[in-house]
Simulated assay, not measured.
Amino acid sequence: MTIAVQRLASPILPLLTSPSRTLTVVAAYPRAAYATDGTTWLSVVTPGALLPPDALQLRTKSPLVALVPTGSQLIAGQGALLLPDGTPLTIDQQTRVWQPTLRTRWTCQWKRARLQALLDELTDPPRGDRFLATTISRSKALLAELIGAIITADRAHIAQQVDRLAGLGPGLTPLGDDLLVGCCLALTLLAARTGEERWSSLRQEIALQAASRTTPRSAAWLQQAARGEYAREFLLVAQALCRGDHPCLPHLLARVTQVGATSGWAVTFGLIATLERSILPPA
């Protein structure tokens, strides 16, 4: 028995071609599992799940909690990847290799009024307890402070707000980190729109600083953002925003905001808020 790979993120190609190594699954869910050897991360997902920049998407809908349970081990390298039970994953001519970076073949354009309307429609995730409600409110306030510091180019204040947001909240990828990833994606769009290197440099500084102060999985997520690499679904949202009032945008937003308990919402909020809140001149 073999399981075919449907999509493969280009950054993990070296993992498959290098000498064999063992990765331990640190978290497994029905449609996604995350494994690491302490330095390199691999996301194994099934169709319909978020596709991170370090992902292998399998051509199966079998629950991953059974295929790659938490604590189990994957063997990767020498052109192969073996599941814990020894089942090999196959890469064939139908496997699609994708680049987790922003691709824009057009001039980025957006209007502040439209961004503000999207922000108003982006309601907070359900606040199941007082701690989560407090975390959401505090994180949004800190993000606003960070954006203000970006506008004024106050590097000391930027660093201070990043330190406060990094690792803020529970979970594999805390809420504060997800907001920062969204902010970094907005800086990537600004770099694409203006051609100014300062936006890319600032993105790298913010992401790497936050990565040193959070959970291992979230640190990997932020290190990818530092390189301008993001989950496929968030890139699609960014590219739709870049094209103005794209007809697919409502559908894309509805999908990504449902990812995780707060992750999809937070990345999206960080992206739109950073674009809208006074970084861009009035349209």
Results as ranks from 00 to 15, higher is better:
residue 32 A to R: 14
residue 73 Q to C: 10
residue 25 V to Y: 01
residue 35 A to M: 07
residue 78 Q to N: 12
residue 174 P to S: 02
residue 146 L to Q: 02
residue 265 W to F: 11
residue 250 P to Y: 02
residue 89 L to Y: 06
residue 227 R to W: 07
residue 190 L to D: 00
residue 116 Q to M: 14
residue 204 Q to N: 07
residue 123 T to G: 09
residue 91 I to K: 05
residue 125 P to W: 04
residue 148 G to H: 04
residue 239 Q to K: 03
residue 235 L to Q: 00
residue 124 D to C: 13
residue 250 P to R: 02
residue 132 L to P: 03
residue 174 P to V: 13
residue 171 G to W: 15
residue 44 V to P: 09
residue 59 R to S: 14
residue 235 L to Y: 00
residue 115 L to Q: 03
residue 195 G to M: 08
residue 46 T to C: 01
residue 227 R to M: 04
residue 20 S to M: 06
residue 131 F to S: 03
residue 186 A to Y: 12
residue 43 S to N: 12
residue 88 P to H: 06
residue 216 P to G: 05
residue 14 P to V: 13
residue 281 P to H: 06
residue 30 P to K: 13
residue 112 R to F: 11
residue 96 R to G: 07
residue 144 A to Y: 04
residue 182 G to A: 04
residue 273 A to G: 06
residue 238 A to C: 13
residue 224 Q to K: 11
residue 186 A to R: 09
residue 251 H to T: 15
residue 7 R to Q: 13
residue 227 R to D: 02
residue 122 L to I: 08
residue 176 G to P: 04
residue 77 G to L: 08
residue 143 L to K: 06
residue 273 A to T: 07
residue 277 R to H: 15
residue 108 C to G: 00
residue 4 A to Q: 07
residue 44 V to D: 03
residue 106 W to A: 13
residue 85 D to V: 14
residue 11 P to I: 15
residue 43 S to L: 08
residue 99 Q to F: 09
residue 65 V to W: 10
residue 7 R to A: 14
residue 215 T to Y: 15
residue 214 T to A: 01
residue 244 G to M: 01
residue 225 A to E: 05
residue 1 M to A: 13
residue 54 D to A: 03
residue 8 L to Q: 09
residue 232 R to S: 09
residue 30 P to V: 15
